[in-house]
């Protein structure tokens, strides 16, 4: 815990500034390689830097672990993140608000778009099973969930949103090679803008482990959820925006502590891919 708005890394004493980094250099392991690692560490601001481990891998690569002290200061008052700007509700509260205020089921359409076949994220949010003991949106009685699954084309998504009279469209993007997640999201939001007038458009929400939550406006969507998002957060957000008369407009940036770190999204680089592909 820090006492003030300025902090620095903590090794085993307040203010010691100690960090640990590991990296690989494309050189065989010898004295020169170790010197090169220390030079890199110095340029990264580690002073003094201690090379604690080095090991050659294959023909021309060496792996290093370096500990060292950085002089950089972190100004907590200058940290900018998206803070949760809606109240977190229980499933019962979500259902109750929809029933009382909307008086019909709230329609949610979800999909992975583009070539992305990783349904892990959207399934974690939508499937009854949910994630980490928290049930997915299918579990909410007052939500009508349509999960289109993987590799849905944008026109199909727009058509499904229309057919289901979607109040909200949730899109998951895991694959980020060549910024596919950004291109796909822009294509998706543009298609909805073209297909439906303002006011008739569903709320557009995207999620994935590699999105910058601050980019919602730039990508033309209402909200971006990053790694570690739970179904309850998504449900609470939907109710806040669509039912409870919450603030309109894209998510605003707020100063303060970092968003809750997550641990549950999966990356594109899964070591095991089942029989998929």
């Amino acid at each position: 815990m820090s006492g003030g708005p300025i902090v620095r890394p903590y090794g085993d004493a307040t203010g010691d500034g100690m960090v640990q980094v590991s990296f690989t250099l494309p050189v065989p392991h010898d004295k020169r390689a170790e010197g090169a690692a220390l030079q890199l560490a110095a340029k990264m601001g580690l002073d003094p830097a201690m090379l604690v481990h080095s090991r050659q891998m294959g023909d021309g690569f060496t792996f290093f672990v370096v500990y060292g002290r950085v002089s950089h200061l972190v100004d907590l008052s200058a940290v900018r993140v998206v803070e949760r700007d809606y109240p977190l509700l229980s499933a019962k509260e979500v259902n109750g608000l929809i029933r009382r205020r909307l008086r019909r089921k709230l329609s949610v359409v979800g999909a992975c778009i583009g070539t992305d076949a990783h349904t892990v994220g959207i399934d974690a949010i939508l499937n009854v099973k949910g994630i980490a003991g928290e049930k997915g949106l299918e579990y909410y009685r007052e939500l009508r969930v349509t999960n289109l699954g993987a590799q849905v084309s944008v026109p199909d998504l727009v058509a499904a949103a229309r057919a289901e009279r979607a109040d909200a469209v949730l899109v998951s993007q895991v694959v980020t090679q060549r910024d596919a997640h950004l291109h796909n999201t822009r294509e998706m939001s543009a298609a909805f803008r073209e297909a439906m007038p303002v006011g008739r458009r569903p709320l557009l929400v995207v999620g994935g482990p590699r999105f910058d939550e601050l980019m919602a406006g730039e990508l033309g969507v209402d909200r971006i959820f990053g790694r570690g998002t739970t179904p309850g957060e998504v449900a609470s957000y939907l109710v806040h925006r669509l039912v409870a008369g919450g603030a309109a407009g894209p998510a605003r940036a707020a100063a303060g502590a970092t968003a809750a770190p997550g641990d549950r999204d999966r990356s594109a680089g899964r070591g095991t891919e089942g029989v998929g592909g």
């Binding site: 690989t24 090991r55 294959g58 792996f63």
Partner: peptide, 16 residues
């Protein structure tokens, strides 16, 4: 198994 599962496509050092 890769310790960087859920982080990145495995790096050379991750595999090693």
């Amino acid at each position: 198994g890769m310790m960087t599962e859920a982080v990145v496509t495995p790096w050379l050092s991750d595999r090693d």
